[in-house]
């Protein structure tokens, strides 16, 4: 069946290339955004083919799901297009410069990718896995061996939310002006399923693909669904001020763990092997909560008002 897998890979690669082209040059912004979302979903398939199920989960939840929601919400808030073409036709077809450059760049990149030596940290990671406190090598790298990267990453998410909130207060209504009557009931029905799925992903992260990032993304998506259904429950400075600390909880917990192990005679982020398992579970829990709320905050696109307007949107 070797030819079947090769045919599948080729079909997937051609489809991905075409969707990428459509997302930049397709007619109409809506079509471009939807092409990109389909591109993200097909990428998840490609990650599975490349034996990277952790990335497939994250790509499906974050790359296609949350990014798609962000893009669609930005599209709806965008001022109407002014009729000018999306692509500068003069520059697009300057073949004398673009075509040779693109071909040279493409062949150089292809050659470089072809000749690149494969990295070889697989053996070292497998050898150290016994000390990591978890069985899933990707989780071990993320939260133990290279935990500093994850600390910075959560810092970047927090920074993104702070930048967006500092751009001004949210003024536009977020829910659709004529929401479907089924949406609130459906949202209420589905939200427990979102919570259950993200808890399962979080727990699974210790021994199989999963972990804080897909879990947080699923929970954040559930929050966005509730928001679209008309719920206004979160992040106001008036009613839920203290709850906003959850946004920073993941970062603070990781910093506390990194500095805390210094007190028991270890190095920065070097967990004592006996405590590594529970510590990683705790960090995953706090990071998952933080990521869910941070993605939700990014989706809002502005600082929430002091108090949500609870009246029906006209």
């Amino acid at each position: 069946m070797a030819w079947a897998t090769v045919a599948f890979d080729l079909l997937l690669a051609v489809g991905l290339g075409w969707l990428a082209w459509q997302s930049m040059h397709g007619t109409g912004l809506f079509r471009a955004v939807v092409s990109f979302m389909v591109f993200g979903l097909l990428m998840a398939l490609a990650w599975v083919r490349l034996d990277a199920p952790d990335i497939a989960l994250a790509e499906a939840a974050i790359g296609a799901g949350i990014t798609g929601a962000l893009l669609l919400s930005a599209l709806s808030r965008w001022p109407e297009a002014d009729g000018s073409p999306d692509v500068d036709r003069r520059r697009r077809w300057a073949p004398g410069f673009w075509m040779p450059t693109a071909i040279v760049l493409l062949s150089l990149l292809g050659l470089a990718a072809w000749r690149l030596p494969a990295p070889g940290l697989g053996v070292e990671t497998a050898a150290a896995l016994g000390l990591a406190g978890v069985d899933n090598p990707v989780t071990a790298v993320l939260l133990n061996f290279r935990a500093f990267d994850t600390l910075l990453e959560i810092g970047i998410l927090l920074l993104g939310a702070v930048v967006i909130w500092s751009l001004g207060t949210l003024s536009q209504p977020l829910a659709p002006t004529a929401p479907s009557p089924a949406l609130p009931a459906l949202g209420r029905l589905l939200f427990p399923a979102f919570v259950l799925a993200s808890t399962y992903l979080l727990w699974r992260g210790g021994h199989a693909p999963g972990g804080a990032f897909p879990a947080g993304a699923v929970l954040g998506a559930g929050g966005i669904l509730m928001l679209l259904a008309g719920a206004r429950p979160w992040l106001t400075s008036d009613e839920h001020g203290p709850w906003r600390w959850i946004l920073a909880l993941g970062l603070l917990a990781m910093l506390a763990a990194a500095v805390g192990v210094l007190a028991v005679g270890q190095d920065f982020f070097q967990y004592p092997p006996a405590l590594a398992g529970p510590l990683i579970l705790l960090l995953e829990l706090t990071a998952g909560l933080s990521i869910a709320l941070l993605l939700f905050a990014l989706y809002l696109g502005g600082q929430p008002p002091v108090r949500w307007d609870r009246g029906p949107t006209p």
């Binding site: 990650w47 490349l50 034996d51 990277a52 952790d54 990335i55 994250a58 790509e59 974050i62 790359g63 949350i66 990014t67 962000l70 893009l71 990718a113 690149l116 494969a118 990295p119 070889g120 940290l121 697989g122 053996v123 990671t125 497998a126 090598p137 990707v138 071990a140 790298v141 993320l142 061996f145 290279r146 990267d149 994850t150 990453e153 970047i156 998410l157 920074l159 993104g160 967006i164 990032f213 990521i291 993605l295 990014l298 989706y299 696109g301």
Partner: peptide, 30 residues
Amino acid sequence: VTVARLAEPLDPVPHAMVLTGIVVTVSTTA
């Protein structure tokens, strides 16, 4: 990830880097 797939055994470090990168990309996009 493709280069990590070519390594023997499978190298989880690029996987973790890409996971980090996906989250950074979504913050950048937002």
